[in-house]
Design a protein around this nucleic acid. Structure first.
Lengths: 361, 361
DNA sequence: CTGAAAGCGCTTACAG
DNA sequence: CTGAAAGCGCTTACAG
């Protein structure tokens, strides 16, 4: 140890001092980045002292600490957090896995959780699954190997309901976002889908619409919940829910476009639609436009999510606001609480949808 | 070492075997996750052998390897990659920092780079800067401490031109994405802004437009380059470039909306516009709609980027296609090449914009 | 307040 | 082919 210690040199440092290289030094030691041992040597203290200084321990006298920091700075020392984490068995890394970043809703969720996490001193492993469960499994395993402190997951479509339990058995704090995986003891953050879609439907009914379609979406728990809300509002108003009012399609812009085209070709024609989410509503608006129709005047449309784009679509979209960014932030909060106390009881945050009226309905 | 070795036990394993707990064992050893030492013990080999097996080394006989893997599986062993990386001084983590995920263009870039990186066996630290340089600095420093293998950066507005050099001096392979930081020896991936915007402008000129505006955007290298392309096309056609044709605004939907409103209130009125990017074009379409006008029939609009949404905006947007996802993939490719050979000469990938005609122009 | 020693979970020469 | 030993860059009791 002493031998290595003596010969360890920092390149920049050496050049500065103009020392001639020690002929006995191993070749690679010239370029090796400095460690706390080098700092200790430079400051004339032990490496424990350096470690304590770097951790901001009050145990070290202020002058000593200052000197150590100055030397560290001078020789270009960089803290190796991964080494520290290995020894202390802690980690400040959190894994966030997202199913569909092409939907701005999830991008906003990601931005929200990332911000809160970074502000709390974490750093995030991000993985995108494209809604593929095998890809999801791969990245989850990889995060596990990397020893993350916790995981926030927007499950891919088709995720087995047993996944939360499995991840918890790995010993990893977990929060599920947006898509519930059925009953189970996991923390969850998402919107009130049924209540939200019922409110949207009620708004259209109150505006006098009788043939109200449900546009876009086709599978998954969120679809079921939103559809249920739509149906319950129809029933409560004594309106039939005709299957011809359903226009299932992928939850994408293209899907929304396709669904609206299908709807416009049916008769009797519906006069309004609640949309599975905002992006299907955007696709629907495009379809309307192609037929020379405009949402709001010729056909009433209500979205769900209130993504940023909804305020500037053509026309601006009326939608159920569930504050996507806030959902991400809440996920961060719940996850950090779980990390802080693994035994705390299961927590759920359900964002209350608020009708945001603009021009499409 | 031997002492710890003997007493180390894996919970599940023990219960299975029905052994009574060793009274001398330290209490925490019951719950400690298994390490290669436990696997070695279970398989009756040395830990070096286990390590070799886990690395898939051909040095180990197949039967031995099988037995080791089976035992590892049975006792619930999880590879600790961070420990391995500390020892071997390697790492499979790459940092990706993005300035604005609320712009689908960058979300698509992110998805592209993430996919390629994950497919190559990396895992990504993702950070979002909100175009704030101080936040960018923080996350970069944090990634450095985490010892990433390389960094892909979409610089925040206002990033000092010296940043690439600084990161390289840290010893980190780097690729700059989308926003060039001036001349310098760094790898770069981005679109041909000037040529692309010139082509867009030429298309409008060829369609007979004479008063063509430049809508949205207001600062940054990308803005300058795209504006230069617009100006050069105008000049080449012998058209004046009147300052009243410029409608600078933030590069957002709201900015595009605002800029179009300003344009519509000026006289003589322009009949067409090239837009800084797709999202400003979306905002512009909304503004047009509010005035009862429609892009394509009442006003010609060309975007830049060809984000996924452009195919389903209202109306579908004609735009300069620079394949955002591919940009991300190319960034991954360049970065991996740089990691593989730090001395390889500087590489640049400039996506050639292709005019994608839809309905807005 | 500071130092010497052990150890986090791995890998990597080096022997045999 | 396999094992014993050293070491990656830190932290953490434990002495003094």
């Amino acid at each position: 140890m002493i031998r290595t210690f003596q010969f360890r040199q920092v390149k920049g440092h050496m050049n500065q001092r103009g020392k001639t290289p020690n002929p006995m030094r191993k070749p690679e030691s010239t370029t090796r980045p400095p460690t706390i041992i080098d700092v200790a040597q430079a400051a004339g203290v032990s490496k424990s002292t350096v470690s304590l200084v770097l951790q901001g321990s009050p145990l070290i006298r202020e002058e000593t600490a200052d000197r150590v920091r100055a030397e560290a700075q001078r020789i270009g020392y960089v803290y190796n957090r991964r080494a520290a984490e290995l020894r202390s068995k802690s980690t400040n890394v959190i894994g966030v896995v997202i199913n569909d970043l092409m939907n701005p809703f999830f991008a906003e969720v990601l931005v929200g959780i990332e911000r809160r996490l970074v502000d709390a001193g974490y750093i995030v492993f991000m993985a995108h699954t494209h809604d593929q469960v095998d890809r999801q499994r791969r990245v989850l395993l990889s995060m596990r190997e990397q020893n993350v402190a916790g995981i926030a997951l927007c499950p891919a479509l088709g995720t087995p309901k047993s996944l939360p339990k499995e991840i918890q058995q790995w010993g990893l704090p977990l929060v599920i976002m947006v898509r519930s995986l059925g009953p189970g003891a996991y923390d969850f953050v998402g919107p009130q889908n049924e209540a939200g879609m019922a409110a949207a439907t009620r708004h259209l009914i109150a505006a006098g619409h009788r043939r109200i379609a449900f546009l876009g979406g086709q599978s998954g728990i969120v679809y079921e919940q939103r559809l249920a809300g739509y149906r319950s509002a129809l029933s409560a108003a004594g309106l039939e829910h005709d299957d011809a009012l359903l226009a299932p399609a992928p939850a994408t812009r293209a899907g929304g476009h396709e669904a609206m085209m299908a709807l416009l070709d049916r008769s009797p024609r519906s006069t309004a639609a609640v949309c599975y989410n905002d992006i299907t509503a955007f696709g629907a608006m495009a379809a309307l436009g192609e037929r020379g129709l405009r949402a709001g005047t010729d056909f009433a449309l209500i979205g769900f999510d209130n993504v940023l784009d909804a305020a500037h679509s053509n026309p601006p979209l009326s939608t159920m606001d569930i504050r996507p960014g806030e959902l991400g932030e809440q996920a961060a909060t719940l996850l950090m609480a779980r990390i802080g106390d693994p035994a705390t009881k299961r927590q759920t945050y359900l964002a209350e949808p608020r009708l945001q009226l603009r021009q499409s309905a």
